[in-house]
Amino acid sequence: MSLNYTAVGWNKQKKQYVKILWLGILAFLIVFAALQFLLHPNISVETLIIRWSAITAFILLHIILVIGPLCRLNDRYLPLLYNRRHLGVSMFLIAAIHGVFGTIQFHALGDVNPIVSIFTSNQNYLEISNFPFQILGFCALIIFFLMAISSHDFWLKNLSPKFWKAMHMLVYVAYGLIILHVATGALQYETHLIYWIILIAGFLLVASLHIVSGIKERGNLRKTYQLQEEGFYEVCSLSDLEENCGKSVFINAENIAIFKYNGKVSAVNNICKHQMGPIGEGKIIDDCITCPWHGYQYMPENGQSPPPFKEELSTYNVRLLKDKIWVNPSPLPEGTLVKAAKIDI
């Protein structure tokens, strides 16, 4: 969380993340170049750069896409998610090397503008194997560019989390474009079976992780709660909640997070104002609910971020009957103070 604009809020973890990331990118460049010159000494430096940047960006894109579902399946991967934007921006920079270098190599210094050339040099739009694959890569690069330049909380706040999130979901469109870019481009020239195996395995890995984590989420959403009285629903027992931990419940289309702390129980909206993270999977730290994704904090009784921050969540009325927790899913205006239900000891 940051109140004032800072380009990057560096801390020890973030520095380590970026260091390991770029060490990996550099190491891959060295290994890739060494193997190329060893096995194919006639390769040109330009081709080496184009292929290295393509493969590196492609691998990074897969890593970016598997982090989300991995975290949904096991929260110990969360450190990879917290700084994922650095991975995204790095991937864009390397993809841009590929795109710019490819455009200069194949389209510049000719009789038409290079960008015009990308769209006109191959016009077999109706043939799959001969499709102008560079257009697909160009469109994907535009999406990555928009994502990279907006990959900052300044834009998240100004564009609104909903719009920002929707815009960043375009990564799946870009991924589809990249799969087609590779399949109708490089794989039409390099025809060894291993390339298709790698492409399909990568796609299956991303797709299966998303499906499995989706099934897990769906199971949580499907749980139904019976209305008992005065608009309150019985959601769980006190013993179902660990101290300072939360639980997510979905009642009447309301996504609610319930927390047990200091002998009290409170409920707030389950969607973080930052990047729509699952608040209910968070924890009470320094008397504040802390979102598991990026550590945004809210006070449990009023859903407000601690001053000077201004984010606010809806709150809900909670009752305790014996050891059962009851919640009224009608949301109160964001930031409304609701007295926590006290646990009788």
């Binding site: 801390n11 020890k12 990996g24 110990r76 969360l78 450190p79 924890k283 802390t290």
Partner: peptide
């Protein structure tokens, strides 16, 4: 208590560190 990761803290829990380490080694 279940270890909880917060990105803005200086250190991450050792359980998270171990998982991330394995992921990086695999890559």
């Amino acid at each position: 208590e279940k270890p909880f990761y917060v990105g803005w803290q200086e250190e991450m829990p050792k359980e998270h560190k171990s998982t991330v380490k394995k992921f990086i080694i695999l890559i």
